[in-house]
């Protein structure tokens, strides 16, 4: 039992930097949501129920443009499809005995960053660890949105512009330390960057929506890496030369 409580506390501890990073990013989301015409309550409700950065920002655009519900569902599906791959990956780190209810709870908090620390957790993933990380991450994401929505308009523009890179800073902080230790991940990440840039700028390819672009680039670069550098169980998570 005390082991369980330790896992929960470790989840809180590892989740704290995520919480603080989310505060900055969701603050920017709150500002943008209110400027789209949503109320403070609606903006906060989106963050509480969605807990996803890119999908929420895209959703705001659709609400602003009075897009159809089908379009909303389609865009969310494409942009967030990566979570399906992350959830599938985490399913392999859960003991088969973990109950459906706990799995449903872990699923709710499967963000890029929570996935990052869960994947990096040595051995099997304890649901208590996920609970701690998800609770504190949700707190940061929701509270930040509320604060941004409530007070965003009084902030100077320079500060809002600076907050724009917070989300990407977090992504970089997840990828680089692992890529430094595993050259195959470094190659995969660089291939993804190259492909993503080609799809963004090359004629014809640049007409593909950003959600689709991320999916195509992910499948191609991770697929190629899986063929070229298959991972042995023994070396998984271990350091390569």
């Amino acid at each position: 039992m005390s082991q369980k409580r330790n896992a929960f506390r470790e989840g809180l501890k590892d989740g704290l930097p995520i919480c603080l990073g989310y505060l900055a990013v969701s603050f920017a989301f709150g500002i943008q949501a209110v400027s789209t015409g949503l109320s403070v309550f609606q903006s906060t409700l989106i963050s509480l129920t969605n807990l996803t950065s890119a999908g929420q920002f895209a959703g705001l655009g659709i609400i602003a443009a009075s897009g159809s519900f089908l379009e909303m569902a389609g865009v969310q599906f494409i942009i967030n499809l990566r979570y399906m791959l992350m959830s599938a990956a985490i399913s392999q780190k859960l003991s088969p005995e973990v109950s459906t209810l706990k799995r449903l709870g872990i699923a709710f908090g499967m963000t890029d960053e929570v996935f990052g620390i869960s994947a990096a957790r040595p051995g099997m993933l304890e649901p208590a660890y996920s609970a701690g990380a998800i609770l504190i991450a949700m707190l940061g994401w929701t509270l930040g949105t509320f604060l941004g929505a409530y007070s965003g308009e009084i902030l100077p523009a320079g500060l809002i512009s600076a907050l724009g890179v917070a989300l990407y800073g977090m992504f970089i902080a997840i990828v680089i330390p692992v890529a430094r230790d595993d050259k195959n991940i470094m190659i995969t990440a660089m291939a993804a960057v190259l492909l993503s840039s080609i799809f963004t700028f090359a004629p014809v390819l640049n007409t593909i929506s950003s959600g689709f672009r991320i999916i195509i680039v992910t499948v191609v670069s991770a697929g190629a890496a899986a063929i070229l550098f298959p991972v042995d169980d023994a070396e998984e998570g271990a350091c390569c030369e």
């Binding site: 990956a89 890029d112 994947a119 990440a189 960057v193 993503s196 992910t218 991770a222 890496a225």
Partner: peptide, 11 residues
């Protein structure tokens, strides 16, 4: 490899 490819492509 998926998470690292996705996060890199998004950044």
């Amino acid at each position: 490899y998926v998470p690292y490819a996705t996060l890199s492509a998004m950044t």
